[in-house]
Amino acid sequence: MAKPNPRLLEVIQTKYITPHMCRVTFGGAELTDFPADQESAYIKLMFSQGDDTRPLMRTYTVSAQRDNEIDVDFALHETEGPASTWARNAQVGEQIWVGGPGPKKLINNEAEWFLLIGDMTALPAITVNLAQLPADARGYAVLEVSTEADKQLLKKPDNVDIHWVINAHPNAKTSPLLDRVQTLTWLAGQPAVWAACEFHSMRALRQYFKVERPIPKTHLYISSYWKVDSTEDQHKIVKREDAESLE
């Protein structure tokens, strides 16, 4: 399938939904043929580096979609990259090239209970996943945010419990997400697990779901969305090498 051409989109609105999460709403004439039902799909934001240099591309999730509008939520880290810096300073009317959408990554709904795990970079995708679960779904969402003020009110089934983890300084040596997951009461039946977070934390979780709580590949999605002290381009290389080491 041919990749869709990038679209030139326009900033319609910006707002902080929490102190470390900035929402940018995009619209414009070129969004009119954007496919429907793309919440949780990924897009590529393109940042110009000059006429003769390939633009920097950064990957983000469509967190909400309405008629001719999409929302994209930007997690703001201690060390800001080009995308979060751009989002913090974006002005209404500003334009940016956007590629995609790419495939949606949804949890396997054919399960007896559900476990969703992620940090702030994955929170937009987890928000969509929680909202689309069956009304009678049960399980947990373990969500890591920078401060207490970064907690969000999320739409979810009544029997899915949310566990917030506060971690102001993510690092390569600890995984507060795994620490909290290990305290959960493991429910009976086949779980489906969806996890996305920082690279080192992802590897710790992957090992846990391989050895201590084995989950079949049909019911496990696990990915790293970023790597501490690395650019997205550096993270891509490490991510690819890590995937190849598992083959």
Rank of each mutant, 00 (worst) to 15 (best):
M1E: 03
A2G: 05
P6E: 08
L9I: 12
K15G: 13
K15R: 15
P19F: 15
M21C: 14
M21R: 14
T25D: 13
D37N: 09
Q38Y: 04
Q38K: 10
L45D: 04
F47W: 09
S48F: 12
D51W: 05
D52Q: 06
D52G: 06
T61L: 01
V62Y: 00
S63W: 05
Q65E: 08
D67M: 07
D71Q: 08
V72Y: 00
A83W: 09
T85C: 11
P103W: 02
I107V: 12
N108L: 04
N109T: 05
F114D: 00
L115G: 06
L116H: 04
I117S: 05
A122W: 09
A125V: 07
T127N: 13
Q132F: 03
L133M: 06
P134H: 02
D136T: 05
G139H: 03
Y140V: 10
V142M: 08
L143V: 08
T147E: 13
D150S: 14
K156M: 11
D161M: 08
D161S: 11
V165A: 11
V165N: 00
N167K: 13
A168L: 15
H169I: 14
P170F: 13
A172T: 10
K173W: 06
L177H: 00
L178P: 00
T183F: 12
A188R: 03
Q190D: 04
P191V: 03
P191W: 04
A192N: 01
F199V: 02
H200L: 03
H200C: 04
A204N: 07
A204L: 12
V211P: 04
V211Q: 10
R213K: 10
K217C: 00
H219N: 05
L220T: 01
Y225W: 09
W226V: 10
K227Q: 11
H235T: 09
K236N: 06
V238Q: 03
D242E: 01
S245M: 00
